[in-house]
Design a protein around this nucleic acid. Structure first.
Length: 713
RNA sequence: GCGCCCUUAGCUCAGUGGUAGAGCGUUUGCAUGACACGCAAAAGGCCGCAGGUUCGAUCCCUGCAGGGCGCACCA
């Protein structure tokens, strides 16, 4: 055994240890089988890393997420399971594109159009590659035991083939369609975004009461109402009983006389405002639905750049955000403004990627139909919505903590068709070609002249949705797919339960007639010490690598895990990392103590210690820790083992050993030493999933040539 | 509006149907065969409020208050 240095330096040792693991090949379950570490018929444990976006670097939330997973994976591996954990990264279409666009604009004053599609994409890919390399380095630094030989990227060749295949299959089933529907349009980024990517922000604005013929209507957005020619009220509203559904009225409006039609619809809230409103179906989701129900004509008022169209008369060409006050002014001049309420709380739709205001538009886009019945071998006749619900309701997929199942169902109930086409360049090109009126959807381009591919790309979540099986080689019937699918576990944060988890269940159900994973372990968000989210604008970011370098990745892992009950947010406090750094040192010093005081003739095999109380105590602890890990209560498991090592093993047993060394007989010394070493090494095993680096380092000092990572639990 | 969660020691949080635990912090000793990133000890809590179930509730139920979040969306 080597001499233990007086101080444990995590920074120095951790990188070396990771190299040892990588060289061993044991991150790859097939190597474990080949080398006889894992039996061929061992139970399977498989998982895919939620792929980090290639938009820069990892933050502390990734460190938390990766640690959770690494604990499960290391535990499974030590349990003797055939354990696979696949790494990868996500191209994150819109997020990455907008990041690069901003950078190029800032540094070179050029837009993506100045560069052109091809040159711009080259730039984005370069950026993505650099981010990827940084991310991989970071993930390794934190100790994640991933099988790098199977690394995937949501935008690589293999995954692109999967995306095209998925699109084609769902198109053939009638589950992907092209249609004119209202979508969330970001005029600044010039693209649609899905409902789940819209973020509603509150703002205080004036609320206008306007004279609309015999009615008074209330609105927060007079600047959109030029084309309003339907006036809607509740069928049971006594106040407006004398107006009949479909009745036509002549009235004076912003730019002159219009013919208005009365519509009766029960969505109207009689209590709100005056109980009457006019509708703008082209630019409002609710209005659009009313118009669809009553088969009304719809007219565009705002163009795709956010400017008013000729329908606005004298205001045509004005940007929508400047129009409100001038339109209100004109209304007042015409005597149409009844009153203004100030300080009205309004919710504005913004794009969560970039924060621009959303102006809904009716556009021809590609959608996934969630309410359309279709036939599917396993699920019989169903809809995607039912399929998603059924997978969880039946218990085939278990979401834990359980409360997230309720949230999941609630979301499904309110789900609308998913808009999957984006007008950005970076991403999977939609596998559809046009020639005049002809449309061709296929995995490969059609033969023949004159076909032109759809210029749009797919929502990034469309490719992420395939992740649990695209990483295993689907659509090819690979050995990996038959061996490792469905995945045992998936461990995402609750903020992507809908964006991602639900959609993986969807695609897997349609394309493979199977659930993508058996268990979903949901975790919370890491917040700063004041409870705020980490964000660039607040500048409160903490670099996990700086922490790992200062205190050790082990310490960072412990600080993130202990005190974090499943699914709960955690407030991050650097003090805690420091505390667990001290614990690493403690372990190092126990090792030092044992090696310094080892009797010359020590041979553990010669002494029988099986009946010792301490052995049974540790066995009981092992049982407890195991149960906690099995139930995903890592915070309890980690605390237990931490407490045992420090306050029992070090404080009690090591102290007792000192007495034996001083006063005991030769035989007592041998027994005591054997006992101590056994207890120490066994507790290292229990701690290994949590603090893989110190435990491995110390283990290899005591058991040269072996690797703790693949020792039996 | 519908739904989910939280309220426990100064701080951050675990936890259990039998009147409570950790880390950090605080106080007091201590250079004791590894460790001051340490050792030994201590102080500190009507477990948000009000009812109910129970032999017994911090834990289960109901209501209330405060805080957080999700969905829907109010024109």
């Amino acid at each position: 055994m080597q001499e233990f240095s007086s101080k444990y330096d995590p920074k120095e040792t951790e990188e070396k240890v990771y190299e040892t693991w990588e060289k061993s090949g044991f991150f790859n379950p097939d190597v474990c089988v080949e080398k006889g570490v894992t039996p061929k018929n061992a139970e399977i444990f498989s998982m895919v890393l939620p792929p980090p976006n290639v938009t820069g670097t990892l933050h502390i939330g990734h460190a938390f997420e990766d640690t959770l997973q690494d604990i499960v994976v290391r535990y499974a591996r030590m349990q003797g399971k055939r354990t696979l954990w696949i790494p990868g990264t996500d191209h994150a279409a819109i997020a990455t594109q907008s990041k690069v666009e901003k950078e190029i604009l800032k540094n070179e004053g050029k837009s993506r159009h100045d560069l052109g599609r091809e040159a711009f994409l080259r730039r984005v890919n370069e950026f993505a590659k650099a981010s990827h390399d940084t991310i991989v380095r970071q993930v390794k630094r934190l100790g994640s035991s991933l099988d790098w030989s199977r690394e995937a990227y949501t935008l690589d060749e293999q995954r692109n083939f999967g995306v095209r295949t998925a699109f084609k299959k769902m198109y053939d089933l009638g589950l992907i369609y092209r249609g004119d529907r209202i979508v969330n349009w970001d005029p600044k980024m010039q693209t649609t975004v899905s409902d789940d990517e819209v973020e509603w922000l509150e703002e205080k604005i004036p609320f206008y009461y306007l004279k609309y013929g015999p009615f008074t209507i209330a609105t927060a957005r007079p600047e959109t109402k030029f084309g309003d020619k339907y006036v809607v009220m509740h069928p049971d509203d006594e106040r407006y009983k004398k107006y009949k559904d479909g009745e036509k009225l002549q009235l004076e409006w912003i730019n002159g006389p219009v013919t208005a039609t009365v519509i009766k619809d029960p969505v109207i809230d009689m209590e709100f405002g005056t109980g009457v409103m006019t509708i703008t179906p082209w630019h409002d989701m609710t209005d659009f639905e009313i118009a669809m129900r009553h088969n009304l004509t719809m007219e565009q008022t705002i163009d795709l750049n956010g400017r008013l169209l000729p329908i606005a008369g004298e205001f045509a060409g004005q940007h929508i955000k400047n129009a409100r006050s001038v339109v209100a002014e004109k209304l007042q001049k015409k005597g149409l403004l009844v009153k203004t309420e100030n300080n009205y709380t309004h919710r504005v739709a913004t794009n969560s990627r970039g924060g621009n205001i959303i102006e809904p538009q009716i556009m021809k886009q590609w959608f996934v139909a969630v309410n359309k019945p279709f036939r599917s071998g396993f699920f019989k006749k169903t809809t995607l919505k039912e399929l998603m619900r059924e997978a969880v309701a039946s218990g085939k997929v278990r979401i834990t903590p359980e409360r997230f199942e309720k949230i999941y169902f609630h979301w499904i109930d309110n789900l609308r068709d998913w808009c999957i086409s984006r007008q950005i360049w970076f991403g999977h090109r939609i596998p559809v070609w046009y020639k005049g009126e002809e449309i061709y959807a296929g995995i490969e381009a059609p033969t023949g002249e004159g076909w032109e591919q759809d210029p749009d790309t797919l929502d990034t979540w469309f490719s992420s949705a395939l992740w649990p099986f695209s990483t295993l080689g689907w659509p090819k019937e690979t050995k990996d797919l038959t061996t490792y699918f469905p995945n045992s576990l998936m461990a995402p944060g609750y903020e992507i339960l809908f964006l991602w988890v639900a959609r993986m269940i969807l695609t897997s159900g349609v394309l493979l007639n199977e659930i993508p994973f058996r268990t979903v372990l949901i975790h919370g968000i890491v917040r700063d010490s004041k409870g705020r989210k980490f964000s660039k604008s607040l500048g409160n970011g903490i670099d996990p690598l700086v922490l790992a370098d200062t205190y050790g990745a082990d310490a960072l892992r412990m600080a993130l895990i202990i005190g974090a009950a499943p699914g709960n947010d955690i407030k991050f406090d650097e003090q805690r990392v420091k505390g667990y750094r001290n614990f690493s040192t403690k372990i190092w010093n126990i090792a030092r103590f044992i090696s310094m005081n080892k009797p010359e003739s020590a041979d553990p095999a010669r002494v029988d210690i099986n009946n010792r109380r301490e052995i049974q105590e540790l066995a009981a602890l092992k049982k407890e820790v195991t149960a906690y890990i099995e139930s995903f209560d890592f915070h309890l498991a980690g605390e237990k083992i931490y407490h045992y090592i420090w306050h029992t093993l070090a404080d009690k047993i090591v102290e007792a050993e000192k007495k034996v060394l001083r006063d005991g007989s030769e035989q007592e010394k041998l027994t005591s030493d054997a006992l101590l070493e056994k207890l120490f090494l066994d507790s290292l095993k229990l701690l290994h999933p949590f603090m893989p680096f110190v435990t491995e380092t110390v283990w290899q000092e005591f058991r040269p040539g072996t690797i703790l990572m693949v020792e039996k639990w």
